[in-house]
Nucleic acid binder design. Sequence first.
RNA 1: AGGUCCUAGCGAU
Length: 253
Amino acid sequence: EHSWTSLILEHANRRQGRQALKIYEDMRKDGVEPSPHTFLALLKACSCLQDLKRTKQVHAEVVMSGFESDVDINTMLVDVYAKCRSLVDATLAFDKMPHRDVVCWNAIILAYAQTGKVEQSLHFYARMQQEGVVPDRLTYISILKACTYLAGLKTREENGGLHVLQSILEIVRVIHANLRKRKFQSDVVVGNMLIDVYGKCGSLKDARCVFEAMPRRTVVSWNAVIFGYARMKEGEEALRLYTRMQREGVQPD
RNA sequence: AGGUCCUAGCGAU
């Protein structure tokens, strides 16, 4: 069983989802019983296929094998259903969970965040705290993702979105304050997201401030700040940053 | 044996 699972996982990691599912069929034909690890590997395959129908089939197999209340599997189901763009199924899986830890709260927050549903993300964020679960770095990242996605939509609208951008900006400032309090502000991914979202909200000043304060930067940090200026038609500053990036030995990608 | 994570682009849809 272990070797079957490794094989499935390997194909899933190489984004060969269909192969992975086929191997699972062979495994069952050989009369081998799947373990929770098998399903985690299968769900990873579903996640890259983004195929709702197949995900539901795997879900059915999970139930038949008696792993319906496995926390890890359910968390992954929430995530995969969201990647298949079925928030309904993601939410159903989430609601069925008897016990919820921070990881699964993060998964549902991210599920809504991925399509810019800021209000719902914040709603789950509030609920998790009511239930005594302490947010972690990924919780904040997930909420920032919701803000980023929505801000990205609104900046592309020529005029209409200005007041929305303003309210997103206010939310981001609150999250930013929390991140400072929790000492997550020096995290690279967090920093990258703040640069991006501040830029998309039109606040290059905040974006730049975060960028300059970062203890460590990656090419993503540079991209985010450069695209921020470019978006606001500040081509010259974007170019200056681009040359500075090269001077500091970071390769463009 | 690894349940949730960043920008842009490219594919897929």
